[in-house]
Amino acid sequence: MLLCRHIPYLAATVKQFIDFIPLILFFIVYKIDPRTIELAGHSLPFGGIFSATAVLILSSVLVYGGMLLVQRRLDKGQWLTLVACLAFGSLTLLFHNETFLKWKAPVVSWLFALGFAATHFIGDKPLIQRMMGHAIQLPQPVWVRLNIAWIVFFLVSGAANLFVAFTFESIWVDFKVFGSLGMTLLFLIGQGIFLARHIHDGDAEAVPTANKKD
C-alpha cells in the first residue's frame, strides 16, 4: 500500500530528471574542443558555448515535443522551461553573447518560486498540493510547509546559479548542469523522506479507525 502511494511521486521525480536531458547534451557539446564539421555539404562549427546552445534548443524541442505527443499535454512548468530555453538560447545565438543564457536558470527558478508563492494567496490550495494531492493525502499544514520548501528551493537555486555564472565564469556551465542536478537530487531525497514520514504516520493512524468500525 505504501509503495503504491509512492508510485506517482516516483513518476513525478523521473519526469523531473527528464528535464535535464537537454542540459546534459548541452554540457557534452560545450566540452568538445571547437572544430568544424561537414554536414550535408556545409561546414558547421561544433563545440563550445554557441553550438552547445543550439543543441540545447534543438534537444529541448525534441524532448518536450516528444512528451507532448505521448502525454497530449505539457505541465505549465515544462512550457515555461521550453519557452525560456527558446528565448534565452535564441538571444545568445543572435547576439553571440552567452550573458543571455546565464540569466536563463535564475529567471526560470525565480518564476517557479513566484508561481508557488502566488498560490498561498490565489486559490484554495498550494501549488504542490494541486500537483500531488491526487496521489498523496496530507494534513493541510504539511502541504503549506512543503510548498514553502519549494519556494525556498527555487529562490536558493536561482541565486546560486546567478552567483556562479557571473563570479566563477570558468565553471558556470559545470555548475549549471551538475550543481543544479545535485541540488535537485538532494532536495527530492529530502522531500521523499519528509513525505514518507507523514504517509507512514497516516497509515498508522488509519488502522485504529478501521478497527473501530469492525
Results as ranks from 00 to 15, higher is better:
L39G: 04
F153R: 06
L146C: 10
A54D: 10
T209L: 13
G66K: 05
V107K: 01
V144R: 15
Y64P: 05
S90L: 13
I21H: 03
Y9G: 10
A54C: 12
A206S: 13
V61Y: 03
T119K: 10
A54W: 12
R145T: 09
F17D: 00
D33I: 07
F178S: 07
V29Q: 14
D214E: 13
W150T: 09
P34D: 04
A160N: 07
L138T: 03
F88P: 07
W150R: 10
Q16D: 06
W150F: 14
A11I: 01
G192H: 15
P141T: 09
S157E: 12
L25S: 08
P22E: 01
S170Y: 13
L44K: 10
A54I: 11
V61P: 06
Y64G: 06
A12T: 07
I49D: 04
V61I: 15
G202F: 09
E205C: 04
V152L: 12
M131G: 00
Y30H: 12
I128S: 05
F95L: 08
A196D: 15
A12N: 11
I199A: 03
E98D: 12
A11T: 09
L74K: 11
L44D: 02
F175E: 06
F112V: 03
K125D: 12
L74T: 09
L138A: 01
R145H: 09
F95P: 02
P45L: 05
I57D: 12
F116N: 04
A204C: 06
C85W: 04
S60N: 08
F20A: 03
M1E: 10
V142Q: 13
K76F: 12
T13H: 02
G190N: 11
F50Y: 15
V14N: 01
F178W: 15
I128V: 15
V55G: 01
P8N: 00
T13D: 02
V29E: 15
L25N: 06
L181Q: 01
T53P: 01
S43F: 06
S170W: 11
G89L: 00
A165K: 10
V83I: 14
L185G: 03
A117K: 04
G158T: 05
G41E: 07
L39K: 04
G190C: 02
T92A: 14
F50L: 04
L94A: 15
F166T: 11
F187E: 03
L86Q: 11
I49M: 13
I49H: 05
A196L: 15
A135V: 05
K213E: 12
Q191L: 04
L62Y: 08
L82A: 12
R5F: 05
I7P: 00
F116W: 07
K104T: 01
M1D: 09
K15T: 05
